[in-house]
């Protein structure tokens, strides 16, 4: 029974693992390009396990941004997970303490989306299913990072093969993924202008905090909507 549920989870997570694989490899290659060793890249994938924030982390690290700001940015990019863990609380209450610990560690976007979907349909959310779904994404993520990092170390000039375009376009894709959220356009416009001004007048890396703060303050100051939005953030990371 438990074994069946584990394999059901593995089957469910398999297509997501395939879709995430190029990003794992991309992270590995870009991490090495930004001054990481192969081991550092693999360690980060295994311990942080959040693709978008890992990309943000290496980009800022490569630009010699202060460490506290790197950690804060990783925290900020991952902040949506707070909504996820709040939202699936009702489904994982029956897990033991150790199971919850592991479950929250593995709580990536598709894991959240699938758990929510399954719970809404009234299907049982067992630890075996959750673990199967999580591990089939987690383990290849680490392996793909290794492959990408090894490949990245063989590249001489990243610009000649166009590697430098990938991070900005990737981040642009992530930003577009949030476009259904309230006040998306004003927030993006203000953050964009403030970060460009910050880059111009203050310099890197301060443009990141200046631009981010401008957008966040704007969102807090704008008149609030009547309806209270439920945690609906099922943005995809990749």
């Amino acid at each position: 029974m438990t074994k069946d549920e584990f394999w059901e989870g593995v089957r469910g997570g398999f297509p997501i693992m395939l879709a995430a694989s190029p990003f794992g490899a991309l992270f590995g290659a870009l991490a090495v390009d930004n001054g990481f060793t192969i081991a550092d890249a693999v360690f980060m994938s295994a311990s942080v396990y959040a693709g978008a924030s890992q990309m943000v982390g290496i980009e800022l690290f490569g630009n010699h941004v202060q460490p506290w700001l790197v950690v804060l940015s990783v925290f900020a990019v991952n902040f949506r997970h707070v909504l996820y863990s709040a939202s699936i609380a009702k489904y994982v209450r029956h897990f033991t303490f150790g199971q919850k610990f592991l479950a929250f560690f593995l709580l990536v976007d598709p894991q959240y989306a699938e758990t929510e979907k399954r719970g809404e349909r009234g299907l049982p959310i067992t630890f075996a299913w959750y673990l199967g779904f999580g591990l089939v994404i987690y383990i290849p993520w680490i392996f793909n990072t290794l492959v990408g990092a090894i490949f990245g170390q063989m590249i001489g000039d990243p610009k000649a093969i166009g590697l430098d375009i990938l991070l900005p376009v990737y981040f642009m894709g992530l930003v577009m993924g949030f476009r259904k959220r309230d006040r998306f356009l004003p927030i993006v416009a203000v953050s964009a202008l403030a970060s460009i001004a910050g880059m111009h007048f203050v310099g890197s890396p301060w443009h990141v905090s200046i631009g981010a703060l401008a957008g966040i303050v704007l969102a807090a100051c704008l008149p609030q909507n009547e309806r209270t939005p439920a945690p609906r953030a099922v943005e995809k990371e990749a």
Binding site: F79, F171, M172, R181, S191, A192, V208, A219, A220
Partner: peptide
């Protein structure tokens, strides 16, 4: 609302410059 704005605001600063 502020928390909701965090990802788009942070990521935009990596794109626009």
């Amino acid at each position: 609302a502020a928390l909701n704005a965090v990802p788009a605001a942070v990521l935009t600063t990596l794109v626009a410059p």
